[in-house]
C-alpha cells in the first residue's frame, strides 16, 4: 500500500508530530514498509476467529463507587509550565 508524503503529513498533524521536510521522504518510506507488514498479516485467514481486544483472557475488575482521592492540586500543578487561579494555562485555542 503506497503512502504519499501528504498522508504522512496528515497523520503527523493529527498526532501533533513535527517531521522536518528533509526527512519526509525517508519517513514516508518507512511508514510504507510498516503498512506492508500489516498488509501481509491481513492475508492470514481469520474466518471464525473472534477479534481479540486484549491479550489477557480476563474480565475487567470493577471498583466500588467511592471517593478515595483528595484535592492535591498544588502538588499536581507543580510540573505545569503555567497556572493561574487554579487553572492550567495553555496557548490560546478557540473554535
Amino acid at each position: 500500500m503506497p503512502v504519499t508524503t501528504e498522508d504522512v503529513a496528515q497523520v503527523a498533524l493529527l498526532a501533533r508530530l513535527s517531521i522536518p521536510e528533509e526527512t519526509m521522504e525517508d519517513v514516508t518510506g518507512r511508514f510504507t514498509r510498516v503498512l506492508e507488514l500489516v498488509a501481509e498479516l491481513q492475508q492470514v485467514d481469520t474466518d471464525g476467529v473472534v477479534p481479540m481486544s486484549n491479550p489477557h483472557d480476563m474480565e475487567q475488575r470493577l471498583r466500588a463507587d467511592a471517593v478515595t482521592e483528595e484535592n492535591r492540586r498544588d502538588e499536581l500543578q507543580k510540573p505545569a509550565p503555567s497556572v493561574e487561579d487554579g487553572y492550567f494555562l495553555v496557548p490560546r485555542v478557540i473554535d
Binding site: S82, E84, D85, G86, Y87, F88, L89, V90, P91, R92, V93, I94
Partner: peptide, 12 residues
C-alpha cells in the same frame, strides 16, 4: 475557558 486569561486558554 477562553475569556478569562488574555491571549491564553485556562483548562479546568
Amino acid at each position: 475557558v477562553h475569556d478569562r486569561f488574555p491571549g491564553q486558554t485556562g483548562v479546568d
